[in-house]
Design a protein around this nucleic acid. Sequence first.
DNA 1: CCCGTTTGCCTAAACCGTTTAGGTAATCCC
DNA 2: GGGATTACCTAAACGGTTTAGGCAAACGGG
Lengths: 192, 192
Amino acid sequence: MARAGLTVERVVVAGAELADQVGFEQVTVAAVARGFGVQTASLYSHVKSSHDLKTRIALYALEELADLVADALAGRAGRDALGAFADAYRDYAARHPGRYDATRLRLDAETAAASAGVRHAQMTRAILRGYDLTEPEQTHAVRMLGSVFHGYISLEAAGGFSHTAVDARQSWDWIIDSLDTLLRQGGARPTA
Amino acid sequence: MARAGLTVERVVVAGAELADQVGFEQVTVAAVARGFGVQTASLYSHVKSSHDLKTRIALYALEELADLVADALAGRAGRDALGAFADAYRDYAARHPGRYDATRLRLDAETAAASAGVRHAQMTRAILRGYDLTEPEQTHAVRMLGSVFHGYISLEAAGGFSHTAVDARQSWDWIIDSLDTLLRQGGARPTA
DNA sequence: CCCGTTTGCCTAAACCGTTTAGGTAATCCC
DNA sequence: GGGATTACCTAAACGGTTTAGGCAAACGGG
């Protein structure tokens, strides 16, 4: 019986590719097994469960994305860094929709703490260091940036912006410019 | 054989309640049937498929939320309206997590066009009329507001903000204040 | 009020994905 | 070359989905 040469890594990568093709939701132990021409039960030597498989795909995508973002950020600061940061996320979501979805899988606290999610948060804070914000404000700003990018990308992926004539790219740029403006003046703080 | 008196509406409402209890993902034709003490197959006279059930729950939640938002908005304008609008969403998500999740179900174009999603967009535009924005800017701003609220609520629900000491409510208020400030000055348009 | 129609719910059965248990054969290491 | 490990298998239970076909309750008209 010729072996397919499965390993956890190969299974996870195959799962990630499958996610991009058919959607993260549709990634199933059985479907991945079919891709390898192998019995479903055979994969259970490599992954504990369907949920385990999905979690591993999520962690993999999180790493991959963090690497790309780190690259995009190298040597940039201010509005330039903010734009590169945002574009890295948006590009990844466009190129790898399934993996990007995986990225949003709810992880339990300890798994999350050990994941590349931490690097994402660090990079966001690094960008904000280019602006002049007090401590609680910086946290608010981290949350705001996460919300905007995350929200925009989901809504765009869900087709939420395709009904209007205005180009999504223009809105994206306008939003980034606005955030930059806002952060430069220290956020809400203006009517002081 | 005593009839349970099922109708599409009762099935959908039961599905929505179940979603709030166990999560939208876990809503299944079989589970709803169990709730009625009825055979699974019986529900298929009322709902075409599992996907059809979920779509109907989504449309129901979208209507309900639009009604609440409309109420919250009545007689308000400016920062006041913006805050009430945002809080209506956040409250709904907190009170009915399953239904809020349903709200984000990917709908095909025609279903979306016939849904209460249209009212949501109209209300967002109504708020923005209180600020002085040119036409393309208004569309950008609609997208930005949608992104922020949507993104923030998802991230908060996913537990993304629970690792830091800073209170989520404070961030929320800071973000709304910031958006208000930003919109009052016309968005990105600063260095003119 | 009774008969025909509609409709609400049923049983049966096929299909698919998940998961566990236990087995066999290929490969690795000494 | 032999013993341990690894990769993959078969078998089987379980649960959700969905279709087909049936019976009985409710309903409306004569």
